[in-house]
Design a binder for these strands. Structure first.
Lengths: 212, 212
DNA sequence: CAAAAAACATACTAGTTAGTATGTTTTTTG
DNA sequence: CAAAAAACATACTAACTAGTATGTTTTTTG
């Protein structure tokens, strides 16, 4: 009987935590969608509570300020997405150059977390927040570094395996590749079309082949 | 006597037009600096009239709305800057690949219209405005196209001169180069440092050399 | 099951925003 | 030089903003 009560209590805590956590996560996800689509400044708390259908009290119970929510989006949504969608694919492939190309192709043409018309979430945040909010800079810098580190590692591994020329500078290549990715997403956003992605990928392939 | 009066009158008109035009231009320039530094949304009309020291009445005499001013910044400031700083340098150089490299180097390291911590003005506008303002998209698309067209032309000319391999796809290269430029500016903005520009330029050079 | 804490709900506020109404001054014109 | 138009100035407003004060309901705990 006592064991049952304990179990029951535990269960209740779990369920409660789950429900509260679920609300929090739901707010983060819907808020992200709004911000990804419209921008951070132009997405108001009222917008968020309208689409999430939580009240202002509930929102401010979960997040002290709007910026705290913004940071939570970066740390709790974008970071995991980066790990799963941008880094993991680099690891299980024989040839890092192929892996990089396939990753880019997937990110640009197939990934349905990312929308062409909205650009790159991290780049959007960078553009909008960096000038006046150092906490955001820091968080964004962190996830950027993370990607950076893993691309470099992949290239260096390729050099050790003799798949990439030894005179290639892994860091330069990484920065060049990352830049081109950010840029093409900006392009896609401006044109609101994936048209540019095709020639971009074509040239990326040529470039990567030149490193073999 | 009559001739003198006519001259005097003409002169007054000229001076007046000049003064009015000067005010308008001054507003545009100061507003651009603010927006370039802080973003469009976070720059209020009150900010602008405070730094320009024109009154609200004067501001709204020159611009019907804030967005009209934003478009004027793109069309009357960014567009000429693009022509002078991004396109003209491509034309007076023997080798287009050298011209492209030198242009990028100049834009990233020497141009003092552009600041590393603020990124690329056109990219900033694109990120912030494109989702919800088609007039801005159009204006930005126009200046992007302009740069695009001239880079392609330079590369094709290089191919005719035998300076660039004939199997190179001029459009793909252009998109790749433009993307990398936008991306590296985003990088610089995030890191608030030109550090990344050096390896970027190094790799850009390698890449461009591979097209010879 | 009572007390307490967690989770949510409602009504408000103080500040900011773009834009306007209504002036005055300066310049132009016949 | 008088009338009119251009250029600027001041005071306001209505809508929106993030955030708060003060609840109520739901859940947890001893």
């Amino acid at each position: 009987m006592r064991a049952f009560t304990e179990y029951q209590t535990q269960n209740l805590i779990l369920q409660t935590m789950k429900k509260s956590e679920a609300t929090r996560l739901m707010i983060l996800q819907k808020a992200f969608e709004l911000i990804y689509a419209k921008g951070y400044q132009t997405t108001s708390i009222d917008d968020i509570i309208a689409t999430t259908k939580v009240t202002k009290g509930a929102f401010y119970y979960h997040f002290k300020t709007k910026d705290e929510m913004g940071l939570a989006i970066i740390n709790e949504l974008l970071k995991p997405q980066l790990t799963a969608g941008f880094i993991a694919p680099l690891q299980n492939n024989e040839n890092p150059l192929d892996a990089i190309y396939q990753l880019m192709q997937h990110l640009l043409l197939e990934n349905d977390f990312l929308k062409v018309e909205y650009g790159c979430p991290a780049a959007n945040f960078t553009q909008e927040m960096t000038p006046w909010h150092s906490d955001f800079s820091l968080a964004l810098h962190e996830i950027t570094q993370l990607w950076h580190t893993h691309i470099i590692a992949a290239i260096e591994k390729g050099q050790q395996n003799g798949q990439i020329r030894p005179d290639v500078n892994a860091q330069s290549v990484t920065i060049f590749v990352m830049s081109s990715y950010w840029g093409i997403r900006n392009f896609g956003k401006l044109e609101n079309s994936k048209t540019m992605y095709i020639p971009y990928l074509k040239e990326l392939k040529s470039y990567l082949d030149s490193l073999r």
